[in-house]
Structures are given as C-alpha cells and as structure tokens.
C-alpha cells in the first residue's frame, strides 16, 4: 500500500473505534460549565450596574476636572506595551474576564479585575498605541478593539506559563496570564 490517502484511512479505521467520546460525562461537564457561565453573567451584570452608578456619581461630581486615566494621575506617560502570542487567532477558550485595561509604571498593559491584575496575552498582530495613561489596542487589521479605562468583557482563558514564542516577556512579571479571545464593551 503506497498511497498516503489509503494509509491514513486504514490507520483511522484501525484506531478510531478505541477512541472514547464519553458522551454522558461530556454532557455533564457542559451542563456544569453553562451553569457557571450563567452565574458569571449575573455577577458581571451586577458589576456593570455598580460601574454605571459610580460613573454617574463621577459625572455629577467630576472631582478635579481631569478625565479618568488608565493608571492614575501620578503615573508618568510612557509608551504602552503588550504581550502577544505567536498564534493569530483568538485563544478559543470560553471563560469570561470582566476588567478595565490599565498600564503599570513600565507601560505594560494589564487587566484590572477588582483587586487583582492579570497580564493579557493578545493574538499575534495586535498592537497598542497612545501612552500609558490613555491607549488603544488594535487588532491585526488595525481596528480598535479596546481602550484604556473602559470596562470590557474579555473572553479567553488562563495560561500556565509564559511561552518562549510570545513577545513582551518583560511584561509577564508574575501573576495570572490570560489568553485573549473575543472582546466586547460592557454597557
């Protein structure tokens, strides 16, 4: 047998019957994930409501008159930097992170979710423009997908460790890594 197509078919036929799909176990796992996702949505909605109330309060009492910044009025403006993956597509993971983009003193862009900061790993080709106090993230075709200081929903999921093929290692200084999937603005 010298035809590659035949060899592959024979191999698939030989091995595929031993592949267990665990249909019921998978169905249970899906049920569990969907339930958890619904709970996250409820929590996200509550956070948005809190953000709207806080925003309204700020609009009525705007403080010193300066617009909100990504990392506070005392941070010096330095060029923002992001970590990018070597994979051009979205991460494919389905978890949800509701956060605001900020930049630290070195300009490294992070997601601020409550008290914790997460280093975001953007798909290959994504770039950032602006400065550390006000910046925009652009996708591979130059479309703005996120802005600093705006609360957004970031689909994706956690990564175990920084990969050598990613860029921006200097920004992965510990803490959680989040592989970015879809982005949408919170309303």
């Amino acid at each position: 047998m010298t035809d590659l197509q035949d060899l592959l078919r024979a191999t698939a036929a030989e091995g595929s019957n031993t592949v267990d799909l665990a249909e019921d176990a998978v169905a249970n796992r899906i049920r569990h994930r969907r339930t958890r996702s619904q709970r996250l949505t409820v929590v996200g909605t509550a956070l948005v409501a809190a953000a709207v109330i806080a925003g309204t309060t700020w609009a009525v009492h705007p403080g010193d008159g300066h617009p909100p910044t990504a990392s506070g009025p005392s941070a010096a403006a330095v060029p923002p930097r992001i970590v990018t993956s070597d994979y051009a597509g979205p991460s494919g993971m389905e978890a949800l992170l509701v956060a605001t983009l900020t930049a630290d003193a070195n300009g490294c862009v992070r997601a601020q979710a409550g008290q914790s900061e997460v280093t975001l790993v953007w798909p290959r080709g994504y770039t950032v423009r602006g400065d550390s106090q006000s910046f925009e993230i652009l996708d591979a075709i130059g479309k703005v997908v996120a802005r600093s200081g705006v609360r957004i929903s970031i689909g994706g999921g956690g990564a175990d460790r920084f990969q050598n093929t990613w860029t921006g290692r200097e920004c992965a200084t510990g803490g959680r890594l989040w592989m970015v999937g879809g982005i949408s603005a919170r309303r």
Binding site: L8, T11, A12, A13, G15, S16, N17, T18, V19, D20, L21, A22, A25, V26, R29, I30, R33, R34, S37, G92, M93, E94
Partner: peptide
C-alpha cells in the same frame, strides 16, 4: 473519532481532544 485519532495518534489523547472540543463548543451561550 477518526479525525482526532489521526491528529494525535493515540486513542486516549484523541478521546480527550474530542471531549474538550465538544465541551468548549457546547458551553457557548
């Protein structure tokens, strides 16, 4: 099953691959 088996070359890893993919796709809203 066949697709997963040819990609991974191992029944156990192939099973994990299909199961995780099914879970991801069907966990969408």
């Amino acid at each position: 099953r066949s697709y997963a088996y040819l990609l991974t070359g191992d029944a156990s890893t192939a099973g994990d691959l299909v199961q995780e993919a099914l879970t991801r796709v069907f966990s969408r809203r």
